[in-house]
């Protein structure tokens, strides 16, 4: 995805929104504020020149030292235009994002996995429950604070989540 075209498109559609772009290994990344991310994604999907019709993955990264703590990554592909892009946004622990499962059906399971592994809530999701871990699981195992060996880990005694599932 050509960043120049994308910059032009984004500044045209979202004037005044603070965002940053980066490029690595020929792949473009755009970081947008959490409250605008759904608007941006919808725009990227619906714009006639961009046509990102496929959401490849929704995932998250935990940076315990940062504020906000979590980074949510959306990987988009346009099967029509044959280009791809990563959209990132940052969110604090305990805050919720808007679901994009109404834009792409594939977001349904991706967001459930984010919820299961990182404890990130998505408002408006039709079925936000654990997907990979058992239903009676406690904690969010892909957070850096989670003890690696789970309940068998001595550190599990001190492990507490701010917001149990």
């Amino acid at each position: 995805m050509d960043l120049a075209i994308l910059n032009q498109k984004l500044t045209g559609a979202f004037s005044g929104m603070a965002y940053s772009t980066a490029e690595a290994c020929g792949q473009a990344t755009v970081e947008v504020p959490a409250d605008r991310v759904k608007d941006v994604l919808k725009f990227l999907r619906d714009d006639a020149d961009l046509q990102f019709d496929m959401l490849l993955d929704v995932t998250a990264v935990d940076y315990p030292a940062r504020t906000p703590r979590f980074e949510i990554v959306y990987i988009l592909v346009s099967t029509e235009r044959r280009h791809r892009i990563r959209i990132k946004t940052r969110i604090e622990d305990g805050r919720a994002l808007q679901t994009v499962s109404d834009l792409w059906r594939s977001a349904d399971w991706g967001e459930r996995e984010c919820f299961d592994m990182f404890g990130i809530r998505f408002d408006g999701h039709p079925n936000l429950k654990r997907i990979l871990n058992p239903d009676n699981f406690y904690g969010y195992p892909l957070r850096k604070t989670y003890p690696l060996r789970g309940e068998r880990d001595p550190a599990f005694l001190d492990y507490k989540e701010t917001e149990p599932a």
Partner: peptide, 8 residues
């Protein structure tokens, strides 16, 4: 797999 998912 000495981790939180696997039965030992």
């Amino acid at each position: 797999f000495d981790n939180y998912t696997v039965v030992q």
